[in-house]
């Protein structure tokens, strides 16, 4: 480990991915890359929380099916979501016979799980690890904002929480050429923003801080990567990141944001773009993994960003801290 970055001596292969996308994501530009899409976000359950649990069980079962493995063959699972006390993951795991770590870093949970999973494998403690996240628009709205049927307007800075589930299988012995080569563990950054509708601008400084540390620690430049994907900064957050980065001498010409990619921002009426733990989970496991497999992208830096607030903290007048982890995924022949 160098400063904040873990450099894997033997890069960890990404063996398989699985995604389940919700109805709105199905209408979005990336629909062709998702493995399974839903017609109805309630999944015939009696509450949206139950639906999110079904999503998580579903995506892990799908992952195991695709990799032709049984739950007993998985050494451990890292999973997280946005619900209080991460019940989405905890309750999903009672149906699966896999040793389980529940993790939470808001929308950066997926990055955290990839780094932790890779460390487990690189350290020789595990051979097969799953990393999975879910998020659901209806449960996030209820927890952080207002009831679904309340007639109120969304501010132009607000973002739309992605409904879906994404899972990745890391396997030491897999033949996959797609490998995780390094991971930078982010630090919590607080720029004093209190507007809970303005997640992109809250998280942009965290993304910049992690990006700069990553480049410093690895001795790479931005040009080393074909694409740098941030998690869910949305439209204004991405602009802010690019602007702040250029002030420090980093020209982010190859930057994309998963929140911008997943929806057609104007036509789908999502204001500033997508957000949520599964925003980068869906884009990475669906779109980016596909592009890496086809060789269209060779070196990718994935930087899921998370705003670490709760409804109580924002009501008590606390500002919103943010975190960002970076994972470099490369095709190694």
């Amino acid at each position: 480990m160098k400063n904040q970055t873990v450099l894997f001596r033997s890069p960890v292969p990404v063996a398989e991915t699985a995604t389940i996308a919700g109805p709105k994501e199905k209408e979005g530009p990336l629909h062709a890359y998702f493995h399974y899409t839903l017609e109805d976000d309630l999944l015939k359950q009696d509450s949206h929380e139950h639906a999110e649990i079904r999503l998580h069980v579903g995506v892990l079962k799908q992952l195991l099916n695709r990799a032709k493995l049984s739950p007993q063959e998985i050494d451990c699972a890292f999973a997280g979501d946005l619900l209080d006390e991460i019940i989405g993951s905890n309750f999903a795991m009672r149906e699966l016979d896999i040793p389980f770590f529940g993790i939470y870093n808001a929308c950066a949970t997926f990055g955290e799980s990839l780094i932790l999973g890779s460390c487990m494998i690189e350290g020789g403690f595990a051979e097969r690890v799953t990393c999975s996240v879910t998020s659901h628009f209806a449960t996030a709205e209820r927890q952080y904002r207002y009831p679904l049927e309340l007639g109120c307007q969304r501010t132009p800075l607000s973002q739309w929480t992605v409904t879906g589930a994404g899972a990745t299988l890391l396997d030491k012995n897999a033949t996959s050429k797609i490998k995780i080569t390094s991971g930078t563990i982010g630090k919590v950054v607080d720029y004093g923003i209190k507007d809970a509708n303005d997640m992109g601008c809250v998280m942009a400084p965290a993304a910049l801080s992690t990006l700069r540390t990553h480049l410093q620690d690895t001795g790479r430049t931005v040009d080393y990567y074909d694409k740098i994907f941030t998690g869910d900064l949305g439209y204004s957050g991405s602009l802010l990141l690019q602007k702040k980065a250029s002030e420090t001498g980093i020209i982010l010409h190859n930057h994309e944001d998963c929140g911008n990619l997943i929806y057609n921002r104007i036509a789908q009426n999502v204001e500033s773009g997508g957000s949520g733990a599964c925003c980068c989970g869906l884009v990475f496991n669906g779109y980016i993994y596909d592009q890496l497999q086809k060789g269209r992208l060779k070196k990718v830096l994935l930087m899921p960003t998370g705003a670490l607030l709760s409804k109580t903290s924002s009501l008590q007048g606390e500002s919103i801290p943010a975190i960002c982890h970076a994972v470099s995924v490369e095709v190694i022949e």
């Binding site: 919590v188 601008c201 204004s236 802010l240 702040k244």
Partner: peptide, 28 residues
Amino acid sequence: MILNKEEQKVYKKEIKDVAPKTKHISTL
């Protein structure tokens, strides 16, 4: 890392520059 008050003000101004504006007339 927490910014001090002065730096926070500067950052808030930077946000205003990139943030999309509410369309007041049509909303009203």
